[in-house]
Design a protein around this nucleic acid. Sequence first.
DNA 1: ATACATACC
DNA 2: GACTGGTATGTAT
Length: 415
Amino acid sequence: MAKTETSPDAARPWQSYHTVYTNAKAGMDGVDKEKVQRIVYEVSKGSKFFENEERKEAFIRQKIENMRSRCAKITSADSSHYRTHKTVKSGLSSSKYICETVAEKRIVELEATRDLSRVWIHVDMDAFYAAVETLSNPLLEGKPMAVGSMSMISTANYEARKFGIRAAMPGFIAHKLCPELIFVRPDFKKYTHYSDLTRKVFRRYDPNFMAASLDEAYLDVTEVCTEKGTSGEEVAKEIRAGVFEETGLTCSAGVAPNRLLAKVCSDINKPNGQFVLPNNRMAVVTFISSLPIRKVNILTEKPHGQLYLQIGGIGKVTEHILRDALGISTCEEILQKASYICALFSHSTSGLELSPVSAQDMLLTDTPEVRLRKSISNERTFSATGDETLLYRKLDPFEVLKSIQARTLKKSTNS
DNA sequence: ATACATACC
DNA sequence: GACTGGTATGTAT
């Protein structure tokens, strides 16, 4: 009997354990994903973390079931509408007919915001922390290496990625995937130093460039292109050469009419490459059509200081819901099923999901002149305990202070 | 108002 | 044995 993709296979229980580690990522092309998935599952199985993941998965599955049944209702209301030529009401306030009108209106609004007049470059350093560590210790060259600890990995170099190891993976799982993996403790002083060197280069092309993290920045080079009579492609090449000259590190770049697209483009020819999406409606629409929904990101509109936040987007959970409830995996399918999205999600969530329609940055609005930091926090993970005394001790202001001081001291003394 | 969930690096 | 930490937004209750 033919096996369908959706039927759970009891012989392959690891297939139902969803992690982010098998997503398409630069340097992960030749990886045996099935094997990685199996090892991750085997190492994780039975842990408290794993149990919690299963609990969350079950909740999401239930949410998907609800959505599917609401979908079915919308569709049947729709067909009765066309059969009887009567207005559909009686509890079914959201017939497909009404949803389509709402969706069409929103799409028209989004289309109107499309702007192809700017040239944006997104620069993304290649395996940044790992590359910096290799600069200061050339013995690491060519060997699988990760910056982080047995608990958590921040960055893996390309040799390590061949084993399926990547950022946000716990070190002990990475060790199972590659026992020879070298671990290097993070040293943020070093990364900040090299980050500053790259920013000196960025400033030459856009004094108001926006840094999204130590290793990523958005530059508006529209004026540079006009003044010098050059193209975004040429400017990106210059920037990458400049960064290499200043730091000895490689980076990748994406050139596009807006930040959302530029970020997607910088990943295409990683590492040490670039990709240009021309400011041309046809090219942009074609590009967006085949784009996996997971690539959709949103950003805050104004920086605090030089920092530009990348928040939200379609992540693991939303991707799962859209795929299993509505059969959506590309941005083109978002457009086709826009009426369902408008019917099933809140206004702001559907706005996020529909944003690729206009191939436009999804920006947070209602922004003050300069967006200020809204919160500051400091957290510590400790092992599970039922010991009440210990828990209260963790919360004791004096203990908290001591812990923060200890960490601050550690940071300023290493190297 | 508060807790919880999702997201990004 | 071990699944971070900082900041932000959205949703449910």
